[in-house]
Amino acid sequence: MLPGHADFALPAPAAPVRLNGRRPIPEVPQMNGHSEAPSANEVPPANEAPQPTRSEKPAEPIDVWDQRVAGALAFLRRRLAGNYEVDDFGFDPELTDALFHPMLRVLYRDWFRTEVFGVEHVPVDGGALIVGNHSGTLALDALMLSTAIRDQTRAERHLRLLGADLVFRMPFVSELARKSGATVACNPDAERLMSQGELVGVFPEGFKGIGKPFADRYKLQRFGRGGFVSAALRTGTPIVPVAIVGAEEIYPILADIKPLARLLGVPYFPITPTFPWLGPLGLVPLPSKWLMRFCPPIPTAHLTEHADDPMVVYNLADQVRETIQATLLELLEKRPDPFGL
């Protein structure tokens, strides 16, 4: 290290473990370690999944399809009879797992070729506040983050997102959000979820983050008043920063028509290379390559009595922000071509 270099504590540069995606990470030289290979092979479920079905098929060819039809009908019957559980926030785990996640997984795996690092930093049980950078015009990064946590963590946990009140103002969207486990970003809800031991996801940049022009990509915006930090402090929940690379390129905002946005009551009206020129086709996200890295958790249990101290809250928010910004730059070096493989 150079003398006088600002000794900023970056998250441990853990060896990249291949968790998903079909192609190898180019940065990891294959000849480097045979010792790493088995650990990398432990996880991928994608290779294992087809095998059992293939081995079952010759034995009882009808059975698989019969089970699928029976399963689908039973699911339909349970839904039509209202025979399922919904929690206080409106979260419907059955619907989320059966309907939302399979659809999001296609985007996550095949369209964005997402790779995830540092999943070991996501707690296996108990509450945690996952704080990420927000980008991409539509909040697809939040959905991809929840898919990553559901698919990649060993505990297969559900991420409970905190959304802007605009989301809950819109019909249909509000109900999809509630059923998939999201709730309004406010301290009472955040604290209630965290004290119940849930994984809570928040994007403190809010609309400033997703609505920023393409020229400002990967520049973190202001973190609001740090309400997320005080909620974490009050409940003593660890904060896990996460950096998400890739969402900036899905709908690059070239211009923002402010009067039209005001007219429609939305925070911005984006002009992207495809929207509104191609109509509904413009809603198809560009297939950028996504990387996510979870950073080591920041413990807050010892700071519970400082939840109302603005200085502590502000400093901690700043620490989270700097960690995400530094990790973003590190991830960007790993991905020289936004649309590469």
């Binding site: 926030f89 009140d165 103002r169 709730t183 309004v184 406010c186 009472p188 809800d189 209630r192």
Partner: peptide, 12 residues
């Protein structure tokens, strides 16, 4: 209100 918390306590 759309900004209401999901669960009301007596102090809300």
């Amino acid at each position: 209100s759309f900004r209401d918390p999901a669960v009301f306590t007596e102090d809300t």
